[in-house]
Every structure is written in C-alpha cells, then in structure tokens.
Design a binder for these strands. Sequence first.
DNA 1: TGTTGACCTTACCATTGTGGTAAGCTTTAG
DNA 2: CTAAAGCTTACCACAATGGTAAGGTCAACA
Lengths: 133, 133
Amino acid sequence: MTTLVTIGEAADLSGLTSKMIRHYESIGLLPKATRTEAGYRLYNHLQLKLMGIIKQARALGFSLQETHSLVDLWQNPNRASKEVKQLAEQHLTDIDVKINELKHMKKALQELTDHCNDDDNASCAILDGLAKG
Amino acid sequence: MTTLVTIGEAADLSGLTSKMIRHYESIGLLPKATRTEAGYRLYNHLQLKLMGIIKQARALGFSLQETHSLVDLWQNPNRASKEVKQLAEQHLTDIDVKINELKHMKKALQELTDHCNDDDNASCAILDGLAKG
DNA sequence: TGTTGACCTTACCATTGTGGTAAGCTTTAG
DNA sequence: CTAAAGCTTACCACAATGGTAAGGTCAACA
C-alpha cells in the first residue's frame, strides 16, 4: 500500500517548502514527481525519505550540489563509505575555514568597539580604525 | 594639487575591483565619479579614502547596506559615536550567531564522520545519520 | 603614421538558495 | 453552488560578485 501525498503535505512532512521541492525537482536533485490527471505532483514514501535527507544535509550546511552528491551516494548500493566520508571531511574543513574567518572578524571588530566611547561625541575609534585601514 | 586616478588604479590602490567600484557607484555607496571627456571615471584622494573604508568594512563582514551606513556616519561631522558603536555591536552579535550555527553543524557532522569507517563498504554512518533525520 | 595592446565604457547573463507575486485551474468543505 | 484552500507555471527579487561581449580610447613603438 503506497500512500501518496501532495506537495503541501510533503513540505509539512519534510520540513522543506513547496517552493524548494519544485526547485529541487527542476535542478534534478529530486526526481520528477508523478502527477495526477490535473497535474498535481504526488509523492511516495521514498521521495519523502529523500526530502528528509536533503533537509538534514542542508541543516549541516552542505550546498545543494554537495547534497546532490550525498543523495546519489545514498541511492547507490555500490557506494564506498570512503567517498561519503571524504565529502563530509571536506565540508568539515570548509566549516572550519568559515569559523576562523568569522573569529578573526570578531576579534578585529571587538578591538575597535572596545575603544569606542559610546557617547554623543563625534570621535569614534571604529570609524578611525576603518579609515586607517 | 589634486591627483586624479582612473578606475584601474583606484582598484589597485583600494583593494577593490573595478567591477565593485562601478557597482558601488550604481547603488549609491560611492558618489558618481567625475569623467574625462572620453567618459573615463576619475577619482580623487577623498574617494580613494572612501574605497579604503569600504574595503575594511567588508573585510569585517559588514554588508553593503551596513557599510553604507558606516560611510554615511564617517562623512557626517555631527555623528554620535553611540550610533556607530550600536551598528558595530549588532554586527558582532550577528557574527556570534553565525559562529554558533557553524559550531553546531561542525559538532553534528563530526559525530557522524567519527562513526564512518572510511572503507570500501557501503555501510556509512553519515548517510545513515542523514536518513534517520 | 599606423598599429598593437592595455585600458576604459555599457549591457547583459550567471551564480546560490530562497522568497514573493500573479493569473489561473482544481479540489474540498459548507 | 460557492468560497476557500491548494495546486500549477512563469515571472521578478534579493546579496555580492564574476564573466563576457562589443566597442571606444590612450599610450608606446616601429
């Protein structure tokens, strides 16, 4: 017994939006949905599962392209866990790079704000810092 | 004696690209440049200074809109340092939020990869984790 | 002088991922 | 039967930047 749901229910169940689901289909991340005679998209259990995976991958910061690779790997019975791990570790590296960038920004900006007087005066260490380069 | 430079030199001097400079002018972040008879943009010392400030603000992660506010404050002799500091502290908060998001992603993904065997086997904790939701 | 190469101009399209809107058809509930 | 809710496609928008094409301009050099 295969339960089919429309795009709105699929959105609610997966945590995606209808917009995203249509978009993902248009870029090939989700397979083309079957349609009712009226043209409504219908989704089965497997597709809902896929949506859940996509949702999770996005929550972990994977791009849609990376997510696409993960979905392909998940669907491929001959996959090697090596490949998956490599993808994940590359992403972990990317995350670390971003974290470090943000930390540097934070530190630099923090130093400027610490020397800013927070009053009605025009003198301001932040602007001075920006202007000095 | 006012030294005027073309957009390419301005780009080299400021660390921006010609593209960015034109774009910033088009959105009002930089004032409209004077032109030679042939239509070439020319920049003076003040405008180079502005570009430097923009470059620095961007390096600290301020959006173009926030950068616009900072530039306006810098140019306003009646500014209160309070306003600048408020802008900076809001941005610091935003940075913290992003850092925390990335740290959560990192932790979750790290846990999955730690349990992934990195071999030619199809079994993979990462994909299982994504699929379980 | 003529030509070449480096530089400038505008105008367009692409990216990434999502949201919004409009015009119109379908289904459901009252 | 009608109204509301849900679906369809087809657009435009954001943020910030990069790329390209087609063309004008300026410098240097033979």
